[in-house]
Structures are given as structure tokens and as C-alpha cells.
């Protein structure tokens, strides 16, 4: 396995980990932030796959604005979640 492939697998595994954490953690603020991390990992993966425009957009939208929207909402409703 070349270094790039290893990097690829590394990101893929962490993507799944981030997704699971974002969904399992009880604090919605943490969930939102982890979701931002998930998006950022996704953006790295896409950049590595050669989809630079998509990666750029995901960095701006997924990791940036989406996370901000989520956090804004979490602040205005309650922070803890039952699951």
C-alpha cells in the first residue's frame, strides 16, 4: 500500500468514527462540532480524490456554514439530547 492509499484508508476509518461519535454523543453542541470535523475529513478525502472544487465547497459549506447553522440552532433550543 502506498502512502497515499494509507492516508486514504486512514481518513475513511476516521470518517466512520466521526459519524458515529456525532450521532452517539448526548451533548448536541459536541455533536455539531464533531459533525464539522466529519465534513472536514470528507473535504480532505475529496481533495485527495482530485475533486478540488467539491472539496472547496464542502470546506466552506459543510465544515463552515452548516456547522454554524447547527450550533446556532443548538444554542436556541436545548443542548442535551436523549440519545
Amino acid at each position: 500500500m502506498s502512502g497515499l492509499e494509507l492516508f486514504n484508508v486512514f481518513i475513511l476509518v476516521f470518517l466512520v468514527v466521526a459519524a458515529v461519535i456525532a450521532l452517539r454523543v448526548k451533548d448536541l453542541l459536541i455533536a455539531s462540532v464533531v459533525f464539522g470535523i466529519y465534513s472536514f475529513l470528507m473535504c480532505l478525502l475529496w481533495a485527495e480524490m482530485g475533486a478540488v472544487d467539491v472539496a472547496f465547497t464542502e470546506a466552506a459549506v459543510g465544515a463552515g456554514v452548516s456547522a454554524v447553522f447547527l450550533i446556532a440552532t443548538v444554542f436556541n433550543v436545548k443542548r442535551d439530547s436523549s440519545d
Partner: peptide, 9 residues
């Protein structure tokens, strides 16, 4: 909100 995070994933 968890549902929505799931939706985005």
C-alpha cells in the same frame, strides 16, 4: 437535531 445530523451524513 440528531436526525438532521444523520440526514447530512
Amino acid at each position: 437535531i440528531k436526525k438532521l445530523i444523520g440526514m447530512s451524513i
